[in-house]
Design a protein around this nucleic acid. Sequence first.
DNA 1: CTGAAAGCGCTTACAG
DNA 2: CTGAAAGCGCTTACAG
Lengths: 364, 364
Amino acid sequence: MKRPTSKNGSPRAATLADVGRAAGVSAMAASAVLNGARTSSRIAAATRKRILAAAARLHYRPNVAARALAKRRIRTIGMVAVTDEGALNHYFLEVLGGILATAGAHDENTTVFAIHDWTKDAPRLRGMCDGRIDGLILMAPTLTRAAAELLPAHTPFVALHANCRLPNVVNIESDEERGAQEMTRYLIAQGHRRIMHVTGPRGFIGAERRIRGFKKALAGAKIPFDESLLLPADFSTAGGRAAMRGWLRAHRGEPLPTAVFCANDGVAIGCMEVFAEAGLRVPDDISIAGFDDTLAARTTVPALTTMRQPLQAMGSRAVEVLLERIQRPGAKPAKNTIVFPVEMVVRASVTRPRTAEIRCPRIA
Amino acid sequence: MKRPTSKNGSPRAATLADVGRAAGVSAMAASAVLNGARTSSRIAAATRKRILAAAARLHYRPNVAARALAKRRIRTIGMVAVTDEGALNHYFLEVLGGILATAGAHDENTTVFAIHDWTKDAPRLRGMCDGRIDGLILMAPTLTRAAAELLPAHTPFVALHANCRLPNVVNIESDEERGAQEMTRYLIAQGHRRIMHVTGPRGFIGAERRIRGFKKALAGAKIPFDESLLLPADFSTAGGRAAMRGWLRAHRGEPLPTAVFCANDGVAIGCMEVFAEAGLRVPDDISIAGFDDTLAARTTVPALTTMRQPLQAMGSRAVEVLLERIQRPGAKPAKNTIVFPVEMVVRASVTRPRTAEIRCPRIA
DNA sequence: CTGAAAGCGCTTACAG
DNA sequence: CTGAAAGCGCTTACAG
């Protein structure tokens, strides 16, 4: 059997024409049997068999580009995420895991676009919609509404944790306020009263929701809100580390909080690093809680008590909603916002506070 | 200005024909100006300007599927990785980071294929080479040579940490044996003599290389090799946890190793969890070292001393080699194996051993 | 019910 | 140097 080669002699994938030739029929007949859904029934059984055999022999696979061009559908979804110089994070890892699994189950490909900055790279989004994908998932976009207006109308979008309502983009999020409230209540129930909250970037919708939940829980327990125990950071480990280090330095000798609730697991890890450096033991000297339940929370020692967002399920849902929108272009989505419940995950980083007060240690 | 729509009325991306029409020229002329490299110089400046203006107005972008079909190149590379029920790991995260950054720099797309099992899913690999990608990166494949023979000849492949020589696949790896040897030497230099090595899956090339390096270092220091201090695990956190738990149970009351060298960071984390449960403090009671320097090593408390493999750089290199192979199909690669150096990363999980011997504690 | 033609949106080899 | 045609590998609407 001779394998197909292109003019320059390098091997080439078999085409419908190759299969037809090998089976002694037209390329169309081969198409009907191999790729066509209903038409295939009208080919004579013997011919059908010959075609199938030839296809198997030649390892025929329909060319994706050709099929995409003809069907105006490439069976590929895209996801866009910010990467910091090639460094991806745990949030990305969880969401991508869900996306890949569900896309694969629907026999859809996934392509990942890395951008540096939502604002600066917003114009690039349009360029991604040039036939290489059928729809796009935006991961934690901080696009302005104005930038979102420029998204092309011929491609459907779904966002996860969008930072503001985006026109014509379905948003998937979780009940972050309730999660923060519940976590704070848990800390209070353990006996903590002097509780710090290390926040996400102020103004970000996810950060503000957690702050609201935190304050509500304090109010519910009649614990006065102490502004100095609200410590702003970003959503990163480095940010958590820097913030906590700065705070301890500024408050040396003053009473340490007995518990720290962090805006996400990454921030919590940054804080844990600083505590370790300072000789503070978690949870014996200080309790700490995260948010998200990423792989990071499971691989920390001690393992992190955290509020789980079902990130894999959310990524998975993003794919499903996107596929629905791809199937019915132009149709209004059933819901513009889909909210997932959060769930408390008790691990080892929170315990009851010591009776004796601890003071902020000296930091190198 | 009217936006293009398809027959069913839904919005459609602008085509070369749309641009030509808007500018009063043929689609070919538009192509020459917008996408052609050399031909564009021959179009009159005024026409050129009209075409450019029309393209901008219509937000024209060349359709990827059409271009791919015509050029037999889709400017997309694929990467294949095993996922466990949607759960990706730190190794994947690092490598993908490098791949995305470098692919992006070359203006190439990246699509990620998740498989469950190299052996069972080997036949699927061929199906991925159906025009949707120009080349494929295999992440830590445990393919047999026989399965690799079935890889299609029309697509170039690059592997990272392949578990055996794959015909016609360039392999990228690191000097794992030397890394293991160096790490073990470091532990010895700190004063450790009773050193355990928690291995990867026996028979895997990466696991065996580490074992060889470990043994060489012991021999070099005239420390007799103790078979009972070789503890097999897989490359996962759960595997490390189970293995260490089992070992401690089986050796209760016997002397604890003073240092543990783990086959990767994930395994080290599993061991750290078990030590924490058992009331053993790292590094005071027991030192521990990992391998890889993934994000996990940086987010452990105490931070993990580990042997760095430059995983991002390796992913990045995989892309470069793959692109070279795509550019010159059929050409023999310059090297079949590319070996990266490893690098010691000293953090906080290793210290000098205590003078008093510690015995294996009771495990719940 | 079947087969041959037109078309998806590009690029490129080839006449003029 | 330029323009119109053929072709990439499929699918589908449409004659017979």
